[in-house]
Design a protein around this nucleic acid. Sequence first.
DNA 1: CTAAACTCTATGGTAACTATAGAGTCAAGC
DNA 2: GCTTGACTCTATAGTTACCATAGAGTTTAG
Lengths: 144, 144
Amino acid sequence: MVTIESSIKVRLVKIGELAKLTGCSVQSIRHYEKEKLLATLRRSDGNFRLYDSATVDQLKFIKHCRSLDLSLAEIRQLIALNQQPGMGCEDVNRMVDSHIEQVALRINELQDLQDKLMALRNSCASQSTVKECGILQTLSVTQK
Amino acid sequence: MVTIESSIKVRLVKIGELAKLTGCSVQSIRHYEKEKLLATLRRSDGNFRLYDSATVDQLKFIKHCRSLDLSLAEIRQLIALNQQPGMGCEDVNRMVDSHIEQVALRINELQDLQDKLMALRNSCASQSTVKECGILQTLSVTQK
DNA sequence: CTAAACTCTATGGTAACTATAGAGTCAAGC
DNA sequence: GCTTGACTCTATAGTTACCATAGAGTTTAG
Ligand SMILES: [Zn+2]
Ligand SMILES: [Zn+2]
Ligand SMILES: [Zn+2]
Ligand SMILES: [Zn+2]
C-alpha cells in the first residue's frame, strides 16, 4: 500500500494486492494490460504498477465477463460501449445473443460426441485383449 | 501415383493424394508425422513423401479418433497399445471412460454458463441505452 | 521446354493465459 | 548500514492442433 500527496489522498495498491482483491492472477493482469483492457495509471519510483480503486472495479468487471466466457476482444468492445452512455445497447444484446447461440451449438456438438463415445465404449467386452478389443476394432473401421 | 519395382508392385501415393483419400489436410499429415503418429516409409528421388495403403488405413484410424476428440497423445497411446495384441485392453477402456467423463463435465459447465447467459440477457429491456442497459449493470456488479 | 501444380522446410500465428529466467525494488530486522 | 526475503519488472517459451505463408525445389502435361 502506498499513499501519495495530491489534492486528495488516494490509496494505491501494487499488482499483487490487486490480484488478491480480485482473484485474478498477477500474470492475467499484466496480460490484460498488454491487451488494452486495463490501464496502469501510475508507476512507483521503482517502476512498480500502482492501481486505484476504480481499477479494482474495472478488473472485477473483466473477471465477471471472463466467467461468462466472453473473449478479451468482446470485453474490449463492452468497455468501449460503456464509454458511450447515450448510445443504444443493441450491440450488447447482439453479443450476448450470439454468445448464447455459440454455447448452445457447442453443447449439441458435445452431446453428439458423448453419444458416439458411449457407443464406442459399449463395443468392448470388458475383459478382453487388445487384439479382440471392440473399441480398437471400431476405431479401425472407416466411419459412415 | 508412383509404382516402384520390387518383389511385389506397390501403389504409392504422394501427400496430396493421401490427403484426398482420407479427408485430412496436407498440413495435418505432416503434423502427425512430426508428432510420431504416422511414419513416412519412403521418399521419392525428389524428396517427396510416398505412402502405401497401410498408411492410408492408419491415417483413417487417426482421423476417426480425432473426430471423437481424442488428443494426439491419446492416439499415440492407442497406436502403441495396438502393437501389443496380447495385452489386456483395460487401458483402452479407461481412456474412453475418462474421456466420457471429461465431456460430461464440460457439458455441465456449458449448461451452467448457458443459464447465466440467459439470465444476463433477460436483465436488459430491449430498447435501452448503454447507460441504463441491465446487462452492463449486471456485469459491473461483483458476482456471488 | 515451359508453365502449372505440387511438394519441401521453416517460421509465425491462433487464445488466454502459465511458467520460467534473470534482474531490480522494497520493507523489516539486526 | 546491511542483509534477507518477498515482491516486482521485462522478456521469452510453452500450451493444443493445427493453418497460413514464404521461398525454394520437383513433377507433369501440353
Ligand atoms: Zn463470444
Ligand atoms: Zn476393449
Ligand atoms: Zn482425453
Ligand atoms: Zn441492454
